[in-house]
Amino acid sequence: MAEFEVPVLSIKNLQKQYGPGCTHCQNGESPSLVKNYCQVCGTVYACRDVSFDVFPGEVLGIVGESGSGKSTLMQCLYFDQEVTGGGAYLADYENGEKNLFQESSQQQRYIRNNIMGKVYQNPLLGLKMNFSSIGNIAEKLIAAGHQHVGLMESRGTELLDKVNIPVHRRKEAPKNFSGGMQQRVQIAKALSNRPPLLLLDEVTTGLDLSVQASVLDLIKSLQRELNISIVLVSHDLGVIRMLADRTIVMLEGKVIEQGVTDQILEDPQHRYTQQLVHSLL
């Protein structure tokens, strides 16, 4: 168990608010707050003191209703949004000693291109729809400093093969693909630089059930084969049950419960988690 003692990713007291905050709402418990919205100044507290660790080879699930803060959290982790406060530390970056949120935009780009991959719910955010599929992978490799065309082509071919994109379609643009195929190209692109950490944000939402199942099977087999750590956001407890080793439950910007997935689903402690689990049954 020794290798599990050092987290791949540590998040400490992450805060994200939209709006200035005011004397009425800044203590976090005031009557001016309805859920995570201040009726006086209009500030929304999307993430409130969120802390967690992700360990090597672990899949961490994050579940919660719409507006719970889980997608905002993912945007902050991949620097798609700036945080209001808190820290993030990666074992593979400066020995986990530097707060990623305080690094320069150039360094954050380096982290995005080399140490993390992300698969977005909407493929339009993760793919260039007019590039070929293999061109999308090459783009990520070039951003990380690769220059050898032959090596990029072979890496792209290897990855598209892994995610079951037919050879004769690898030079085709993703705009011609089905939703499930677009997600598979996104997964290949996210894995192109062998990142130790993969962020998956609602990757099966909007896909047909049979397509969802094949994408989830793919993620599961790749995770086992490559032994990467994954942070997986979903509102679907079936997805969480299938993939996540541990699970965090979010509500109104806060983590209200966390633990081993089986325990969360079999014996939920918080009233909201109990409602969530019973709605699935």
Score class of each variant (00 low, 15 high):
Ser221Ala: 14
Pro195Gln: 03
Ser32Cys: 13
Val54Glu: 14
Tyr78Pro: 06
Ile62Val: 13
Leu198Glu: 04
Gln212Ser: 09
Gly117Phe: 02
Ser178Asp: 14
Ile11Gln: 06
Asn136Lys: 00
Tyr89Pro: 07
Pro174Cys: 14
Val260Gln: 11
Arg194Pro: 03
Gln26Phe: 12
Val34Trp: 06
Val211Met: 02
Gly67Asp: 06
Ile165His: 10
Gln75Pro: 12
Gly19Gln: 00
Ala173Ile: 13
Gln275Glu: 15
Leu243His: 01
Thr72Asn: 02
Leu90Tyr: 04
Gln75Ser: 09
Cys47His: 11
Arg241Ala: 14
Leu200Lys: 14
Arg170Trp: 05
Met152Gly: 02
Met250Tyr: 04
Val63Glu: 03
His278Trp: 10
Gln81Val: 10
Arg241Tyr: 07
Val185Ser: 07
Asp217Lys: 09
Leu237Lys: 14
Ser214Glu: 15
Leu226Gln: 03
Pro20Val: 11
Lys189Gly: 04
Val149Pro: 13
Glu158Phe: 04
Val44Ala: 07
Val163Ser: 03
Val211Asp: 05
Gln274Asn: 01
Gly180Val: 07
Val239Trp: 10
Phe55Asn: 08
Met129Arg: 09
Pro174Met: 08
Arg109Cys: 13
Leu9Gly: 02
Glu158His: 15
Phe131Trp: 08
Gly69Ala: 01
Ile11His: 04
Ser229Asp: 00
Ile137Val: 10
Arg48Asp: 01
Glu153Val: 12
Leu276Ser: 09
Gly87Ser: 08
Leu232Asn: 09
Phe101Gly: 06
Ala213Met: 03
Val215His: 12
Ala88Arg: 02
Asp49His: 05
Val167Ser: 15
